[in-house]
Nucleic acid binder design. Structure first.
Lengths: 342, 342
DNA sequence: TTGTAGGCGTTATCAT
DNA sequence: ATGATAACGCCTACAA
């Protein structure tokens, strides 16, 4: 025979299944002694309620899902940790799902919500201009974290937690300009990117324009299509190619710290120094950037606060059944040792 | 009204529920035209079968869970990616669960297996000497990945994929000795660690002994209890403390690359150089170690192969309903620029 | 090829 | 305080 069921427990205790159910779910109207007996029997036989049956019957499934494009991204790893702790502390179930780079996270979310009768969804990363049609399919509250997505007016029932990628990017590039740089390379996402990569590129363009520096397309480096973007390997290869091409520049702005680190290594391997020959800045504020040698100037996102706010907003949405909330956090330019004034 | 159910689809198509079920599950005996109609209706109404109901009824739940202590660990991140792809490709459901550092992964696994009627479990990380009592509670096949756990003889139905931590650690320390180092610091896990930290420390001790170098306890640095171990911050703080203490040493062996990077940074901040003044080596073979400046000599685990083997073994166990398999991979000492011959 | 009916393990609504 | 019993949505004999 297979698993122990509620019936087995009931039989063993000489009570009805409903009494066992009451004991499990802390119902008030049950004799303490009966409850004790039941709980003991449950422990003794390692009985665990079948989650599927519970979900099937219950109106409330009490499950929250977090969908992310790549747990590999160290930026997300820390936030996931925080969110999970918070969700579990509130006695909700937590499921974590990676979404393949080429899949659509909203589609996966909508499907999951139905399959598992989710109570809410958290999206980490993803498209910044999601299609209305897909959003409409998601029938539970959700919060998009780290992307200031543009959501149609008529949509409801969602939250957004992010930084202003365009503005922060602007600050960073403006900072580089203020340090005397004008030939600034940006290493960004795919050419057709519509998410963070695009926003950060927009900020770059605006900063140069404001400073009266013409935007030279040969300084804009896109990642090759397909495959993960935010890797050191990518940063290394793109930078090496750039150095070998003979393009002139004094600074590199990488749209992630991982890319920045790859860029630094390429510069070292090429026989140059950071920041003496070339300045490098990153984005996100990872630990890695702080401990790199030289430590990398970056835009620090308040990860823990953002994670907690994401969870807070989601539960608010769940309880009030509606509304739309948005919290744009301020990032902070964290100076390292990777920029030289020229 | 709430969700679309199989009944709604049946009604809309003017057929019985079983016909719809047949269409969904690719049963052979169904009229292609009927099937087409049903599939169209399903798509049109965004119907998704309720997973709980399916699992409740099905003998096979087709779900594999991966439990890990910290998706934050970049070592695991890559493997998780690989395993997930492989599991999904085999048309199994994949659930990912983080286990808190202070929780017992086996307990969580046993509970999850019952709750979700799992088909199999993958443990990434965890104790190297799991209690028999806990193992006995896990009634589905499981594979322990990255830890060469010691399992009682009478146990069955499990697999192990790992490297020989003790031996690889031995090689690394022996390598440092061969480079002329004898005052070698090891930065390892908690003092009471029973997992990888202990094995790597054992290897360290054996290498010194073999070389006839007395083991000086002041060169063994343990992490403070509680909290995550494998962080750059920890490496930094412990190394800084060590430097300030005036203890003499020429090399540091950190039991993870993250710790090694923290150690390097502390050395730089202290005004010394790597490897000119102090050599540093790590463990795991993360990307980070390769792109650090100087790149860090480390023990490279064949992550992708290990991940695939983990998945392969699990499915083998599931199909054959039994057995025990073990695959110890060979790691490789990857030389970087962080060790000097003296 | 298709429909009907019973049951998976649980919770909730009734009686008692 | 407790016990039958009817759902929950789906799958699968079995019958047609």
């Amino acid at each position: 025979m297979g698993q122990v069921t509620i019936k087995d427990i009931a039989r063993l205790c000489g009570v009805g299944v409903s009494t066992v159910s009451r004991a499990i779910n802390n119902h008030p109207d049950i004799n303490p002694e009966t409850k004790q007996l039941i709980m003991d029997t449950i422990r003794e036989h390692n009985y665990v309620p079948n989650n599927s049956a519970q979900n099937l019957k219950r109106v409330e499934s009490n499950t929250i899902a977090l969908l992310t494009k790549g747990v590999g991204n160290p930026l997300f790893a820390e936030m996931i940790q925080t969110v999970q702790s918070d969700v579990l502390a509130k006695d909700y179930l937590f499921v974590l799902q990676q979404v393949d780079e080429m899949e659509n996270e909203l589609e996966v979310g909508a499907r999951l919500a139905r399959e598992k009768r989710l109570k809410g969804i958290i999206f980490m990363g993803g498209a910044s201009r999601p299609k209305e049609e897909l959003l409409a399919r998601i029938q539970v509250p959700y919060v998009i974290c780290t992307v200031d997505a543009v959501i149609p007016e008529n949509m409801d029932n969602y939250g957004i937690v992010a930084i202003d990628d365009e503005a922060e990017s602007y600050h960073m590039v403006d900072y580089l300009c203020s340090m005397g740089h004008s030939r600034i390379v940006i290493i960004t996402a795919y050419a057709h990117d519509t998410s963070i990569g695009k926003l950060r590129l927009d900020g770059y363009r605006r900063a140069l324009e404001k400073r009266g520096i013409p935007c030279d397309d040969s300084l804009i480096v896109h990642m090759p299509a397909n495959g993960p973007i935010y890797t050191m390997k990518n940063g290394y290869e793109q930078t090496m190619k750039l150095l070998q091409s003979g393009t002139e520049f004094t600074a590199i702005y990488a749209i992630s710290d991982t890319i920045a680190i790859g860029a630094c290594k390429a510069i070292f391997d090429y026989g140059l120094r950071v920041p003496d020959d070339i300045s490098v800045v990153g984005c996100d504020g990872l630990d890695m950037a702080r401990y790199y040698q030289p430590s990398i100037t970056t835009i620090e996102q308040p990860l823990e606060e953002m994670a907690l706010e994401t969870s807070r907003i989601l539960f608010e949405l769940i309880q009030e059944k509606g509304g739309r909330k948005k919290h744009i956090f301020e990032a902070r330019l964290r100076e390292g040792q990777s920029v030289r004034k020229i």
